[in-house]
């Protein structure tokens, strides 16, 4: 068990999330079952008030989770100094079996809570509160994701063992035969890059056409594709090493913390993109242009940043890696 101040901070806030989350969960069950915008019953008025409490709790959790997620990565990076063999967060995360699962949960939960808040805003725009039951039913579901994440967090810090020697990112993300993700390294760069830029071009096109369904699909596809492109291609230019593929190391100080910018633009861009699409699909009358715009700007910034690395490298050295 690691009992350093940073870990305690994360666990304390986790405990808080669990407490509030459970409270919100219990209230949500009642709202999802009994809410009826047409009822005049006293209970309905009480439920309307409780709905606001749940929404407030969810906002609290979400807006705290955003910086806490960055802090979690930062902490994992620091812990990598303590764990033999780990060079960055990748090694730490992989030192326990479910490390990557934990990471996935953290990202997925941020998306889910974000979408919930988008739905909430949408709901409060219409006098009949059309999505209230739906959004609280959804929260009942999301709550289990939250609980899963919190338990993973707890077991993760509990299982971290400073005496254990772990693999560093060099072995985890390499093309050698032992690596579990070896097969993706066989994807040739030209195909990968044309897919990457092609999807981005599609993104731009659909942004101008405000095609909700297409935009949704493009954004959903863009997340895994971008991560893949980061690991296989762009990462190597950030490190200027053809063999270093780690998607975590560039979060470190040596690379001017550029990873935070990269991931914030990627996740932010796709989040707004998906939200814009879902809102437009749910409410055909409006286009939610501001969300489309945020999505476009962030995604374009993301593409610009990652593209700058190989271009600058070529400009300086006259060759590709």
């Amino acid at each position: 068990m690691m009992l350093s101040p940073d870990v305690i901070a994360i666990l304390v806030l986790d405990a808080l999330f669990l407490l509030f989350g459970t409270f919100a969960f219990v209230l949500s069950l009642g709202i999802a079952r009994h809410f009826d915008a047409h009822s005049f019953h006293e209970r309905q008025y009480a439920l309307e008030k409780k709905a606001l409490l749940v929404a407030t709790i969810i906002q609290y959790i979400f807006y705290l989770k955003l910086p806490l997620f960055l802090f979690f990565i930062f902490t994992s990076d620091t812990i990598s100094n303590l764990i033999t063999g780990a060079m960055c967060a990748a090694g730490v995360v992989n030192s326990v079996d479910f490390g990557l699962l934990l990471f996935a949960f953290k990202i997925i939960n941020l998306y889910l809570f974000g979408f919930w808040l988008v739905l909430h805003t949408l709901d409060l725009k219409n006098e009949t509160l059309p999505y209230t039951r739906a959004k609280f039913s959804l929260f009942v579901l999301f709550f289990f994701f939250l609980v899963a994440e919190i338990f993973c967090d707890f077991y993760f810090f509990n299982a971290l063992n400073i005496d254990k020697i772990v693999s560093c990112c060099g072995t985890l993300f390499s093309a050698t035969s032992t690596s579990s993700i070896r097969f993706i390294f066989e994807l040739p760069h030209p195909i990968l890059l044309s897919m990457f830029y092609g999807t981005f071009a599609l993104h731009v096109m659909l942004f101008f056409r405000k095609d909700a369904l297409g935009f949704l699909l493009v954004n959903l596809f863009f997340i895994p594709l971008s991560i893949l492109a980061l690991i296989l291609f762009f990462g190597t230019y950030i490190y200027e090493l053809p063999t270093h593929h780690c998607p975590f190391c560039f979060l470190q100080k040596e690379y001017h913390y550029v990873g935070y910018l990269i991931y914030i633009t990627l996740f932010g861009g796709t989040f707004f993109g998906i939200s814009a699409s879902i809102m437009s699909l749910a409410d055909q009358r409006k286009t939610y242009a501001s969300f489309y715009r945020y999505s476009f700007y962030l995604t374009a910034l993301f593409v610009a940043i990652v593209s700058a690395y190989p271009l600058l490298y070529f400009y300086r050295n006259g060759v590709w890696l």
């Binding site: 101040p5 901070a9 994360i10 304390v12 709790i57 609290y60 910086p67 930062f74």
Partner: peptide, 26 residues
């Protein structure tokens, strides 16, 4: 990092303590 730890253990926790009373008031 140190400042963040102090931040996370003070500001959000205080906010949490006043969350439900605020709702009751509102």
């Amino acid at each position: 990092q140190m400042l963040s730890v102090i931040f996370f253990l003070s500001v959000p926790i205080y906010m949490a303590a006043v969350l439900i009373p605020s709702w009751k008031t509102a």
